[in-house]
Design a protein around this nucleic acid. Structure first.
Lengths: 134, 134
DNA sequence: CTGATTGTTAAGCACATACTTAAGTATCGG
DNA sequence: CCGATACTTAAGTATGTGCTTAACAATCAG
């Protein structure tokens, strides 16, 4: 089996595995859940009509590409996101923006920063384009 | 064959197919190329040690998920990106940011807009975190 | 018209992915 | 110690993915 800190693949290979991981709706839902804080394997499994081994396999995919980190304490394995890895994929996409899009982005960021609530609460006061969750 | 404006899948299914499409390094390289402007099928194929049908299959994947659009004129099929679809995936990732990350983003956008070169040239005057191309 | 270019269709193959069930192992509570 | 909890391991299966080759179709240039 692979060791857990092996996710130091170089560039292309990691992008492969991260996008691959995000392909699956179950895995994306797990990511969404973990963005709200750590959870155990069985906590993560409950929302899904799927066997526990299936969930564990999804978690292994997420861990192998560096999207999550897990730690076993006693008989419970606690899972949490590694935020930087999501940003890694996001930055690749951001680099594909057109110049016009880049200008619009800065405008949006400016408007967003105009609202102090957004900064302090951390919840989306301003809706993004596209969907924000599933 | 599927019609081209079919990519009106609802939310989850489109995210599936977009991330799925971005998994493959060949398809990502095609996207990178098309972000610099339209190209024909054989133009897109030349950099790769792969048969033409293989490239066409990749293009079909990209078109079916709405990442690119193609038009056949005479015997040449011209391919171009659909920028909004990349943004769709990017926005999903952006919605998974932590509050701290959101604050940092606005700071970056502010610093970026401080440099008029960046705005007019459209090339990255400021390097993003992570890699910007392959 | 003819032959070269540009792409298309179809069939098939090797390997990966997303599950399943069945049978473990390890910890904890009493 | 003993049974319940929380995973873990192994093996198997159905379907999907990324290619290949071979043969075909359509257009353009001379």
């Amino acid at each position: 089996m692979l060791n857990n800190q092996q996710a130091e693949e170089s560039g292309r290979a990691q992008l492969d595995s991260v996008f691959q991981a995000l392909t699956d709706p179950t895995r994306r839902a797990i990511i969404v859940r973990l963005c709200q804080g750590p959870a155990s394997v069985s906590e993560l499994a409950t929302p899904f009509a799927m066997s526990l081994p299936a969930i564990v396999q999804h978690l292994q995919v997420l861990e192998n590409c560096g999207l999550i980190r897990t730690e076993k304490i006693g008989r419970v394995r606690s899972c949490s996101i590694v935020p930087g890895t999501l940003r890694f994929a996001e930055n690749w996409l951001a680099a594909r923006r057109t110049p016009a899009e880049r200008r619009l982005d800065r405008l949006e960021a400016f408007l967003e920063s105009d609202d102090p609530q957004t900064v302090t609460t951390g919840q989306q006061g301003t809706r993004q384009l596209g969907e924000t969750n599933e």
